[in-house]
Design a binder for these strands. Structure first.
Lengths: 195, 195, 195, 195
DNA sequence: GATGAATGAGTATTCATTCAT
DNA sequence: CATGAATGAATACTCATTCAT
């Protein structure tokens, strides 16, 4: 009955996304998620072993999707700078289109013990490395200054985008439009590191 | 008995800083903090009305200190770009010198309901505005491009620094030294926005 | 699983009756009641929302039973004076047969905030009105003096019986037998108000 | 410094009367009483050894006064029935004039462990015996029926008055005036027991 | 697989009482 | 005597997790 399994699993993840975003991880009760998903409390433990697991699964599934998508999209461009511009736009667009998810990643995820302590955040490292690879490519092509350290630069660029999205998530409104913010931030970065 | 009051208050804040950083806000028990501070559980409630209050007090006191210090230090420079370099260095140095505090601000603070919901984070806005004011000054002096939007740029710069410090806090090691990171990040930013 | 529900509910009420009578409302711990009922502490909160709710439920259930019984029994007599004699006897007999319950109603019930403040004691008013109605009936039939005020008389009669039972409850012994006390008290009252 | 002692003692008793009546014994905090009395918390423990002691002292002092007064007043009458009428009136008048005190005696006193368990309520027994003595006197004079049992009759009469005052205390209003209630209740009783 | 009643460990907060000043 | 800061024992209630049906 594989089909049915996936169906329940999906419904629980969807319900948890809603409930975590609304109440926060610690305040969200398993029974809230169960009610929202239309299943019994105990059913959740057939698909997830702990409360933390729901949060982590939710994060991993979404991150896999995001990673795949971002990889595909940036590879459509050949110019490293064009890749950077596209990355900025897609990242901020993603936040805009997935407010609940964004709030969970920005705020709630950090409240899970298991996530913060036991979980080596590989997916996030891969996401950062997408930027690192673009920068390295730029350096190889002589487009980016030799003294730029990719390990710092990728974090600086990601941090700039992330702070923008944190602002949007917490202020519950978008002061600047996605395109403007993406263009500004990628322009600082590109001008900042180009040869 | 004013002296004694401040003494206890200080000891509790210091103990809480340690315990929150080690265990996280939700997992930290009042009795842990009391033991660490060398007082009885009940004594904590003479100085703070709730568990949340300890966290918020801790944040406000530190932020006031940081703000005052950062304001004083940046005003020693006259060139806006020199101010930016100094800001980056001081910010990262501060994180390095206050690991516990940094971890609390990065991670734990967001777990306090009262903090996230009822508290308008004025101190943080003022901190960001220190950067915003430098950028505006640079634009006024013709050193920074006219099209740069300070509301986005200040967040991009802060975010770049913050992501670097988050990396340090979470990885529990400093891969790059403070001076290198500060120089890199401020160079991206300055080159990125200068005329 | 309706049967099981009622079973647990009943067991908790029975345990609470015992514990409240022995220790008093404030001193009775939820865990005492749980142990006595043979359930976990948390189980109590499946059936009752607060500690006060146990006390109030306990009171209401017993009062309903008492009221129904008293109404049925007094209606078996046609003579108002015979009704009064029977009321006195049944009231004191009830106390004798339900020492724990009587002590709770006499003493503990008043320690519940919710009971004293938010709860309009309708059941007790109905109980008093059983006496009031008998007196009115007696007046209508010309058996009781015209100047008798039912609102005072019903309280005087109930108070006389209640003081007797308070004495029994607090002294932990019955100095006079139920029948003697009932006959004495109803005789004072009947002779006192008859035409 | 005897005079000063009595002064503080008196102030604390007065404050406690107010606070117990308003909040109830369990909810009244020592610090509430201290504030109301204008002394420090610790000062209360110079004059009383426990919280219960305040309640018990308060009760004893008032009862002594009441007993003395009631004894003096009833001895002014020679006719036992006139004594009964006067007793009823004085008792209800006392309640009316000392609402706070009455509420404490009716309700709060029973919340003190020490009072209910360790304290043999001698003063109250003496108060009841005032009625018992009057009834015995009436029997000796041939005014009251031989079959009347004073131990039951005194409680019936006191209970009638007490229920009336409980009604007044709890309903926070006086539905009938003191004189009417006293006349009614003593008339039931006198007619009920006279030869 | 699904249910949901039952479990019981876990903790912030209160407040009577003490005692150094 | 008076103070009031400090103490720390005491407890109702929550909720993740289990397991008999």
């Amino acid at each position: 009955m594989r089909h049915k399994d996936n169906e329940k699993h999906r419904k629980i993840i969807a319900a948890a996304t809603k409930v975590f975003a609304k109440k926060g991880f610690y305040k969200a009760k398993i029974s809230d998620i169960a009610r929202e998903a239309g299943v019994a409390d105990g059913t959740i433990y057939i698909y997830f072993s702990h409360k933390d697991d729901i949060l982590i699964s939710l994060f991993e599934e979404k991150m896999k999707e995001v990673l795949d998508n971002m990889e595909r999209q940036t590879s459509l461009e050949t110019d490293p700078f064009a890749k950077i511009v596209r990355f900025a736009f897609l990242h901020l667009k993603l936040i805009e289109d997935n407010k609940d998810m964004a709030e969970i990643i920005q705020v709630e995820l950090r409240q899970s013990d298991k996530f913060m302590k036991d979980y080596h955040n590989e997916k996030f490292a891969q996401y950062l490395d997408l930027i690192g690879d673009i920068i390295q490519e730029g350096k190889d092509k002589g487009l980016i200054r030799e003294d730029i350290i990719p390990g710092i630069a990728k974090r600086a660029f990601f941090g700039a985008l992330d702070e923008m999205s944190r602002f949007w998530v917490l202020s519950k409104r978008r002061t600047y439009d996605v395109e403007t913010a993406a263009r500004q931030i990628s322009s600082y970065f590109i001008n900042g590191i180009k040869t």
